[in-house]
């Protein structure tokens, strides 16, 4: 089984990329890549239908989180620091 290692490598790479990136807005895509990779790893760690649900829950959760961060961040930038 090579797949988990690939996925883990992708996740590590995405994290490294996200941490190097200075601009907050441009970090978010890498975070999405990481959460997708982690979700994949979750599925591969345990071979069970429920782990699919867990991976889906994690992916939905992290997407929600980065969406919330992104829209708040964007709203702040557009509003020029006002009340969003």
């Amino acid at each position: 089984m090579i797949a988990p290692y690939v996925v883990a490598a992708v996740a590590v790479f995405a994290v490294a990329r996200a941490l190097i990136e200075r601009n907050t807005g441009r970090k978010l895509p890498y975070i999405n890549v990481m959460s997708f990779a982690v979700a994949g790893a979750l599925v591969m760690l345990l071979d069970h239908p429920l782990s699919l649900i867990a991976a889906a829950a994690y992916f939905v959760g992290s997407t929600l989180e980065s969406n919330a961060i992104a829209s708040t961040y964007a709203g702040e930038k557009d509003g020029g620091g006002g009340r969003g």
Partner: peptide, 12 residues
């Protein structure tokens, strides 16, 4: 006064 006005808060 106001709550968080971002689009995820409408559905999530």
């Amino acid at each position: 006064a106001d709550t968080l006005q971002i689009e995820v808060m409408n559905t999530a």
